[in-house]
Design a protein around this nucleic acid. Structure first.
Lengths: 245, 245
DNA sequence: CGACGTGTTGATCTCTCTCAATTAGAGTGG
DNA sequence: CCACTCTAATTGAGAGAGATCAACACGTCG
């Protein structure tokens, strides 16, 4: 993929990034060092790294995860274009989670001190990063609610709705035959604290009831209302809303 | 409790807040509006509020939580002195979780635009907030790993260690007869995605094995090594480490 | 003294896990 | 074009960790 300028960056379309000034854009451009592409299933940031660079996901999907020493794995959240990668760890703390690519994924690489530079010289953008960081936490909060208190059916319904909305928000055209959905059942299981087998059985049950359909890497919600009843979400599941400041 | 000046604020002792300059302190002081005290078990921020102020927990414990419409509750994380309350929501997003006091709790109240002011005029402190926000997320990450992939015994061992360390880091004297531990078993259950009954049985089992002891609102770790083996934490459970910048 | 919150314990019940096999599709090499 | 392999999905059977139901104990408080 050709290296694109920050001017055409897909992140700019996100509502969080209120219209940037020319100076701000130029500033970001100066902090951007490189652009890298990772293969599907490859490691973007290894668990335990301390010197991880700061990335921004430009294209493709990924996920953050933690593992126990015996191999049990929990996916913390899924990363879609526009998400930051490694903010926590770029602040001097040891990283305690890994980041893998789910599909082929292109990232922008920023200077290690980019976060500080941003705060120092473009506080409005620094503020945006804080906002985005807080928003990512709220996604993890939602997942924790699911994993802690929802049944398997409810968890899966919730995940399907949330990912559907996030994916749909990124495409320009209305999602006629569904949205891209690159997760395997193992990813779903690891994201929801379920076993692979039970995930499969639950998915089949929901699909048999006509609630959704997954095929060829695409997800369709066939009965969004029923899924919504299962999920019992109030305001969650919609993409970030408000502009800043 | 007497209103204290930011100069004597307990937060200053936290390693995250590298020595502040006199100007920075003065700046914070100007943003501080008030000081409030909440009763144990009272609501600090109601679920769904949109105009919540920005607080900082000065004294006492609290917790963030989410509930499903049928009443199932998940505690997202526990708040100890030095924690922020409502950062996410003070950034223009609707709040989707509640905050309750666990003990009597005193908070500092800041102007609603304090976060922006901080970023704008004291970028170093703004950066600290971003760091703190990211760090809070990493605590939720750890809990999600527990709830998703650890057994009941392992979850409880993990929680005890983590809270012990956080509480110990806040007291000056070495914790001879344990650290303050104001949680009821219901709080533990809601924080770990377990039922009350099973939480009780598991706690009793661990206590019978001599791993810990809870009495009179205090927690002692009697066999930290055994608890650590159960918890299987690597770097987690210790308080925030590195200074900034 | 009765009511209430918290903790404790026993007896079921069930959701989800684990184990085990099988199927289907993609890629590879002969 | 056909074996061979590997990964992902699927399905059945049995086992188990944890949930639910039901009592009871204990201390505090009005």
């Amino acid at each position: 993929m050709k290296v694109i300028s920050c001017n055409g960056c897909p992140l700019r379309r996100l509502p969080l990034f209120t219209p940037q000034s020319a100076e701000e854009l130029q500033f970001i451009e100066a902090l951007k060092q490189d652009q890298l592409t990772f293969r599907a299933d490859s490691v973007i940031i290894g668990e335990g790294r301390t010197d991880a660079p700061l990335y921004t996901l430009l294209q493709g999907w990924g996920y953050r995860f933690k593992t126990l020493s015996d191999g049990r794995r929990q996916i913390l959240n899924f990363l879609l274009p526009g998400d930051f990668i490694g903010v926590q760890q770029n602040m001097g703390d040891a990283i305690t989670h890994g980041v893998n690519a789910l599909t082929d994924a292109t990232v922008c690489v920023f200077r290690r001190d980019a976060l500080w530079e941003l705060h120092r010289y473009a506080p409005r953008l620094g503020f945006s990063v804080t906002w985005l960081s807080a928003h990512e936490e709220s996604i993890v909060d939602d997942t924790l609610l699911s994993v802690g208190r929802r049944s398997a059916e409810e968890r899966i319904a919730t995940l399907l709705i949330v990912l559907y909305k996030r994916a749909a928000a990124l495409s320009d055209d209305p999602p006629a035959e569904g949205v891209p959905f690159p997760l395997t059942q193992q990813h779903i299981a690891d994201g929801l604290g379920l076993s692979l087998v039970h995930t499969n059985k639950t998915l089949r049950k929901l699909e048999a009831r006509g609630l959704h359909h997954i095929a060829n890497g695409r997800l369709q919600l066939r009965d969004a209302k029923a899924l919504g009843r299962l999920a019992d979400l109030y305001g969650d599941g919609r993409p970030a809303q408000r502009p800043l400041i």
